[in-house]
Simulated scan of single mutants.
Amino acid sequence: MVIRVVVADDQAVVRTAFAGLLGTQPDIEVVGEAEDGAAAVRIAAEHRPDVALLDIRMPGLNGIEAAREIIAASGGATRALMLTTFGLDAYVYDALTAGASGFLLKDATFPELLHAVRVVADGRALLSPDITGRLIAEFTRQRVAAPPARSVEGLTTREVEVLVLIARGLSNGDIADRLTITAHTVKTHINRLFAKMELRDRAQAVILAYELGLVVAGSGANGCGAGGIPAGPDAGR
Rank of each mutant, 00 (worst) to 15 (best):
I3D: 05
V5L: 07
V6C: 06
V6S: 03
V6I: 10
V6D: 02
V7A: 02
V7F: 01
D10T: 04
V14R: 04
T16A: 15
T16V: 13
F18N: 01
A19P: 01
L22Q: 02
L22K: 00
G23F: 08
T24C: 08
D27R: 09
V31G: 05
G32P: 08
E33Y: 03
E33N: 12
E35M: 14
A38S: 11
I43C: 04
A44T: 07
A45D: 14
A45N: 13
P49R: 03
V51R: 00
D55A: 06
I56A: 07
R57K: 13
M58A: 03
G60P: 09
G60K: 01
G60E: 10
G63K: 05
I64C: 09
E65K: 02
A72H: 08
S74Y: 11
A77D: 13
A77E: 15
A77I: 09
A80E: 05
M82G: 03
L83Q: 02
L83D: 01
L83V: 04
T84Q: 04
L88Q: 15
Y91G: 15
V92G: 03
T97M: 10
T97K: 06
G99Y: 06
G99I: 02
A100N: 07
L104V: 07
L105H: 06
L105I: 11
K106S: 08
K106Q: 11
T109P: 00
F110G: 14
F110H: 13
L114G: 04
H115T: 12
A116T: 02
V117D: 01
V119M: 04
A121W: 04
D122W: 00
G123W: 12
R124P: 12
A125S: 15
L126Y: 03
L127Q: 05
P129S: 11
I131Q: 06
T132R: 08
G133L: 00
R134L: 14
I136Y: 03
E138K: 15
T140A: 12
R141F: 13
Q142I: 15
A145Y: 13
P148L: 04
A149E: 14
R150D: 11
S151I: 10
E153D: 11
E153G: 14
G154H: 13
L155H: 07
T156G: 12
T156C: 10
T157G: 15
V160H: 01
V160M: 08
V162M: 05
V164M: 09
I166K: 00
I166E: 04
A167H: 05
G169W: 05
S171C: 08
N172E: 06
N172H: 07
D174P: 05
A176Y: 00
R178E: 06
L179R: 09
I181N: 03
T182Q: 11
A183K: 15
A183E: 13
T188P: 06
H189D: 07
H189F: 10
N191R: 14
R192H: 11
R192D: 10
R192A: 09
F194Y: 11
F194E: 12
E198F: 15
L199C: 07
D201F: 01
Q204Y: 10
A205G: 12
I207F: 02
I207Q: 06
I207E: 12
L208D: 01
A209Y: 05
E211R: 13
G213P: 07
V215T: 03
V215P: 00
G218C: 07
G218S: 12
S219V: 08
G223R: 02
G223H: 08
G225V: 06
G227E: 02
G227L: 03
G228V: 04
A235S: 15
G236R: 13
R237G: 10
